[in-house]
């Protein structure tokens, strides 16, 4: 089709031309998405591990909740974060609305349940295998969690990548809390949405192709690192 051909041409022009505003958008996208995933990992891995290993009242409900929150609609999260960060909202004094930080906050809320829920499942399966051995060696819950997280590291990288995928593909929340401000909060997905709204479908699709290429790049990098690590450590 003509449009799709044009889109590829636009994508090639964007990449080859090293378009300055494209570079800016790509860098900001990485900054926002990586920070969000980093924070969600710091929160989600221990939370998932705790759900897998620690018995507490309401644990089953918490697991159901974590699984359900994987499907949080980005627009709803965006709206909630907007209301919280709005000048009229409880955190208004910090003036975070329409900043990259607001976008990170929204994405952390979207990604953390994914990382926690998937981590829980992986570690619970691993725990079946490891429980007796680790208990026999005298590992308390904290140590056991550490060992499981470490031994599950290859599966968990996929979990983190799933979180990254969610963050980098998401537009609804960042649009609301970031405002898609040129040079300030415009990232790949909101730029695509804007080009669509201008009817420039070829450019929008071209940006989409660039986004996909970036995602393939990140995943390839992680795969290569993981394989090197696996050769080294088994």
């Amino acid at each position: 089709m003509g449009d799709i051909g044009e889109a590829f041409a636009a994508a090639i022009r964007l990449v080859v031309g090293l378009d300055r505003s494209l570079i800016e958008i790509v860098l900001l996208s990485f900054q926002v998405n990586l920070s969000a995933v980093a924070a969600a990992t710091v929160l989600g891995l221990p939370a998932g591990a705790a759900l897998a290993l620690v018995q507490f009242p309401g644990r089953r409900a918490a697991i159901v909740l974590a699984n359900a929150l994987m499907g949080l609609p980005p627009v709803v999260v965006g709206l909630i974060v907007y209301l919280l960060l709005s000048r009229a909202g409880p955190f208004g004094v910090f003036g975070l609305l329409f900043t990259p930080t607001a976008m990170i906050v929204a994405q952390v809320i979207l990604v953390t349940p994914i990382i926690a829920a998937l981590t829980r499942q992986i570690l619970e399966d691993l725990w079946q295998e490891y429980e007796e051995q680790l208990r026999s060696l005298g590992a308390g819950p904290g140590r056991a969690m550490g060992a499981l997280l470490w031994d599950g590291r290859y599966s968990l990288t996929t979990v983190v990548l799933a979180g990254f995928g969610r963050a980098s593909a998401e537009v609804g929340a960042v649009m609301i809390v970031g405002g898609n401000i040129d040079h300030v909060t415009r990232i790949m997905t909101t730029a695509i949405a804007l080009e669509v709204s201008k009817g420039d479908l070829a450019l929008a699709l071209g940006l989409g192709i660039v986004l996909i290429l970036l995602s393939v790049g990140v995943n390839t990098l992680v795969l290569v690192m993981r394989e090197a690590m696996q050769r080294e450590q088994g």
Partner: peptide, 20 residues
């Protein structure tokens, strides 16, 4: 975890201070 938190702080500083 140290590197994750470093990424985080770097970004928060970058984004938090720039508008101000």
């Amino acid at each position: 975890f140290a590197s994750l938190i470093a990424i985080l702080l770097a970004t928060l500083l970058a984004s938090g201070t720039a508008p101000a």
